[in-house]
Design a protein around this nucleic acid. Sequence first.
DNA 1: TATGATTCCATTTTT
DNA 2: TGGAATCATA
Length: 726
Amino acid sequence: MSWVPQGLNREQLSAVEHAAGPLVVFAGAGSGKTRVITHRVAHLVESRAVPPWRILAVTFTNKAAREMRERLEKLVPGQARSLWVGTFHAVCARLLRAHADQIGLRKDFVIYDDADQKSMLTRVLRGMELDERMFAPKQVAFLINAAKQEGRSPDEFEARDPFSRTVREIYAVYEERMAASSALDFGDLIYRLVYAFRKDPTVRDAVRARFDQVLVDEFQDVNHVQFAFVEALCEQHRNLCVVGDDDQSIYRWRGADRRNILEFRSHFPDASVVKLEQNYRSTQRILRAANAVVARNLEREPKRLWTENEDGAAVTAIACDDDRDEASTVVQAMRMLIEASYTKNDIALLYRKHSQSRVFEEQLRRVNMPYRVIGGLRFYDRAEVKDLLAYLRAVHNPDEDVSLMRIINKPARGIGKTTVERLVDSAAGAKTSVHAALLAACDDDSQPATTRKKLQNFAQLLQRLRERAAVGPSALSRDVLDSTGYLAELREADSVEADSRIENILEVVASMEQYEAEASEPSLTEFLELVTLETDADRAVADDAITLMTVHAAKGLEFPVVFVAGLEEETFPHQRSGEEEDPEELEEERRLCYVAFTRARERLFLSHAHVRRVYNDVKIRRRSRFLDEVPKGELHWVGANRRGVHDGQPARSTRPEVRPANGTAYVDRSEANDTLEAGIQLGMRVRHSKFGVGQVTAVADGVPPRVTVVFPDGSRSIISSYLTPA
DNA sequence: TATGATTCCATTTTT
DNA sequence: TGGAATCATA
């Protein structure tokens, strides 16, 4: 009757069946990490009879959580629903609500995203009459978030110099204002729980008593509070299974600390260790290139990914004149791949930073190639979407200042800057919410009659909406949009942007309706939480299109074909101009490069430009050291080199674009290029794994080099690297 | 209050 | 260079 895990290798199986106590799994890229976690959960439920609701599996993204749940639904039908599967933030939010009374929180707290946090901070700074240049909200937010990641309250905030002392004060006031609005920021969701654990052992014990088994995915990315949270949960039973890959840790700048996984064994001396080193994703050649780069890092858990997959096509390196040349060469290569056999969905273009996408987008548009850009502005960050949600929040809890301030004059209702400032001042003076100040002003005879009337109208609007709040999020939204004239205003504007805004708003309303239909107990609070914790990655569309995104955004994904663009010094590895090279940062860049390479299943293309436009001038760029860290024989160099020597690099005269006098073109080949595709020539007999033996009837120079071959069953255009001489 | 002018900023951004 | 945010002015 016992559930039998299937199709697992020895290491995977030992992780799945690990009996009790701490376990750390080092899971290389494409080594079946998710499989191990899901099978382990299934094993616990089915073979060890752990009640599903006593198992907690934590991820970093909603997408990972959803996938895990879906897979578990198949493995242990009917039981997956009661498992605790979610992101750190979602799980902690749920626990905070469940124990809100004990912790001293309102059950229906709202969650502030980064933008909300920043506007709250701006208000605090203005209230304290601080110079916003000295104390930039962005920087202060960073310091406060860092403090929360370290688990430090305002009292524990280290402040030796005057600047830090002021920041500490800001932090304290900020916390007060957040509490007054019953709002929690992202950092709070974990920090407040850990803080409560520390202050009140009964809370800690109550939460701890919920779970028998805890599993954490992407453990290399946990920060200090997250570690403290997990540790606190497992202190008694010690059934903690963490899975991760120190080589894929790319969020150091957000507080992720690789030591959590590297030093897991010192924290838990009795921990079992499993290493998953067999890769099921990429070809030998891709893996060799990726390994070669990351192996240069000094601080890492020793391991080497290997695969039984075939050798595959050579990793292609493309040298380009400038960024536009890079874009057109890459796009050209993509078109050929699509003509040959790939779909657009098979292809991804990765870059170090968003700004690199522009040239590619222009080029893709020029050739009418559908593409999608992942990242950039989140859907729920759009102004109109935030406006609507702010209305809902303000109706839900008028004392929540950030939302109230956002909508107080939107659409314009004559409550101008001065009036708002006066409200904020009196709220700060009386230590009340802005809403309370608003109500007071409505009854204040000393106010000018016209402003007073306007304030009263607004207060009544809120009041009326509040009475209607029970109709549910979608109906309430429609009411808001109609009675405020928000939609009407957009309709009147009658512009393309206005139309897309209307569309976005309607999409939000539609998502509310969907939520209401699906949720067991739909509530405004829960909907708002879902929306703030949700990112865009989940809204991917089904169209056939080429995917463009940063390497960061690509973590956890895989594509048959991957292009990595801009492999140049200062771009990738990224370096801020004038700053000294930090070895730790360089290692992180190298890991990032490793992540980029290992996204590819079959084909990997790496491009760099000799000249790149940066702001308004042009800069000569040396190709990335990462390219040179790949052994020479592993890279097949192609591409433009029409200029000879660049900034001291060896001129690639060894890679001539020569056409023999008789007009026969042949495929570009580089020095030390011992790949099979080199030297494929017109008339040659070649072998293809699927189509058999054929004869080359045409050769097209390009990226990738492509040839036309007549096979027994017809003529085909083939990428030359798939061919071997017959 | 709305608009144009000016200034500032530019790495990555799981939640 | 380009965009967003803030400022200045009618």
